[in-house]
């Protein structure tokens, strides 16, 4: 897994897929991102990212049920794979490790 690299946006989308569980499809992800991190993202960008993640094996997809508001088209539901979870976790941990190296609290050395 050492060679894997996820872009910032890829990581965001992958995380959201993880959060949404069984309801992760294009529009839901766009809305979730808007809601959670207040960021306007484009639907097509999300789709491309999802397919790329699928290529890398971090998510898998299947066609879900159709709803009326979609004009009868089925949703492509994405679910995070174990590999996806692992890479998210690995990224989070490596980031935490780095985070810990930053001196975060000032114990007043400079205050005297």
């Amino acid at each position: 897994m050492s060679k894997t690299y996820l872009g910032e946006f890829e990581e965001l989308v992958l995380t959201i897929v993880g959060i949404l569980q069984d309801d992760a499809y294009g529009n839901a992800i766009v809305e979730e991102i808007k809601q959670r991190v207040d960021r306007d993202v484009n639907l097509s960008a999300v789709h491309v990212t999802l397919y790329r993640l699928e290529d890398k094996g971090y998510v898998k997809s299947q066609m879900g049920g159709a709803t009326n508001e979609r004009g009868g088209r089925r949703k492509r539901i994405f679910t995070i794979t174990n590999a996806g979870l692992a890479v998210l976790r690995a990224m989070k941990e490596s980031r935490m490790d780095l985070w810990k190296l930053i001196p975060q609290l000032n114990f007043g050395y400079g205050a005297s």
Binding site: N27, Y51, G71
Partner: peptide, 11 residues
């Protein structure tokens, strides 16, 4: 890919 995309667009 089209069905999923179209669905999202229509929604």
């Amino acid at each position: 890919l089209f069905e999923g995309i179209e669905g999202d667009l229509v929604e």
